[in-house]
Design a protein around this nucleic acid. Structure first.
Lengths: 248, 248
DNA sequence: CGCCGCGTTGATGGCAGTCAATTTCAGTGG
DNA sequence: CCACTGAAATTGACTGCCATCAACGCGGCG
């Protein structure tokens, strides 16, 4: 399966991912032909340009889907958390590389062709695959909205909210950031220093509370949603400046 | 079907879209239950938050999928060209609004539930839908790569190349931009003035030739790909500055 | 202890957003 | 055909955010 796997063993890739409510259907269909792999930190799960022979599902840990731009800068296109599917491609090759972020990240890999053949006769599986694809689209769109924001503080604020939503283990106001400042920077398209400054800025304005470097408590969701950087420390009133909405 | 359609008529939505090579399979299956709609400029094809009861395919013209951010700014997340599918959503509601860009844009709409039921027994159709979904993912990823670029000139350059690829009618060095400068600005996340300045900058550096405002001829593809803004007018040699590639 | 990766803070310059003015263009009606 | 009109596009001046370079504190580990 994947490139340089460490410990690979065939198993029923069931019942260990902590998130997601509707995973029941897929597991009973897919579990039998899954191969689970355990990965080291920064180990590549699949190469960019490699033949796309597998679809993957993240079981535990964190992974990043990224590419290196011609100017040498790395860009993280997608952040994979437990339950997320990846490895889809419109062409025969993977369009991005996927790397494990934390030590011991485990992924389940499914032979693409066999899965597609199975889906031909199993409508339930086909719908499941469609749904997982739509989830991937939703992730990409959320990421697009973040990248489209203007100031760095807005991006960091949106990122924190997205992480709070995706990692919600019941209460959605406490997050343990799954990636480093450097990864956040490459995920948001800003520099590491700016990530750091934005975080401390949000802290000083009382919108978040930092416990160590990874643990974040969200104090003011609404203000975080539209934190526009030039807001004063005591936000007085919400400013809505509508724009003339150009057409064509 | 869609919100305030102008001229709607049931028809075989076949044989009129100019692009795409592999549309044969889908048409024979989908054509029968498609409803074709003709739209005015800036007319909404589907609302954000509306019940997602249809999947759409752009037949002719151009459409934009966009949202309005809390700060009043519009963001275009996807540009629909003839042959493109849209209207997918992971939830029951459309996550973005879609508007026709040019007068007379026509879309074919397919009842989602009926299509899914059909796909349950028609593996060919199911695979077709999967492929179209993957194409949508590819569009979003390309857009992510553009938004992730640093300088405005890089974004505009990548945009021109993307348009040249997607609108290629044989030779890929001439493009007729399908949208206005304002739309380009909201698509790239930069201001209109910066779009204009970037275009004239690329023109003066000899990378493109402008004929009017919409017609563009691409002179130097490679330089356009990695135009990093601070490059001198006569680009002397390609500079590759690798970065220490931080992990986790 | 020294090294290295990670995170933060400071100083500085450049790119781009904003406001403003002007020109070009397309569409309309006389 | 041409004047008129409004939108689209361009250009200029100015300000501010952020990338960059640099330095420093911190924790883990050989």
């Amino acid at each position: 399966m994947a490139t340089n796997a460490c410990s690979t063993h065939v198993t029923s890739a069931n019942r260990q991912h902590p998130v997601g409510a509707n995973q029941q259907r897929s597991l009973e269909s897919l579990g039998s032909l899954a191969v689970t792999t355990r990965c080291h930190r920064s180990q590549e799960i699949c190469h960019q340009g490699q033949a796309a022979e597998y679809w993957y599902r993240l079981i535990s840990g964190v992974a990043r889907r990224c590419t290196v731009r011609p100017d040498g800068r790395r860009q993280i296109v997608d952040l994979l958390l437990p339950g997320d599917f990846f490895g889809f491609s419109a062409v025969d090759e993977y369009d991005f590389a996927v790397e494990a972020v934390v030590e011991g990240t485990t992924v389940a890999s499914y032979p693409r062709r066999r899965l597609e053949t199975l889906a031909d006769t199993d409508p339930r599986l086909a719908r499941e695959i469609r749904k997982l694809t739509f989830d991937a689209i939703a992730r990409l769109q959320a990421q697009l909205l973040i990248l489209g924001r203007m100031t760095a503080v807005e991006k960091v604020g949106s990122f924190l909210l997205e992480m709070a939503d995706r990692l919600s283990d019941g209460h959605t106001d406490r997050v343990v950031l799954p990636i480093s400042r450097y990864d956040i920077a490459d995920y948001l398209g800003i520099s590491v220093e700016t990530v750091s400054r934005s975080m401390t800025g949000l802290k000083h304005r009382g919108l978040i509370v930092l416990v160590g470097t990874r643990r974040v408590r969200i104090v003011d969701r609404d203000a975080l949603e539209e934190a526009d950087g030039n807001a004063e420390i005591p936000v007085p009133l919400p400013i809505h400046k509508a724009r003339p909405c150009y057409v064509s």
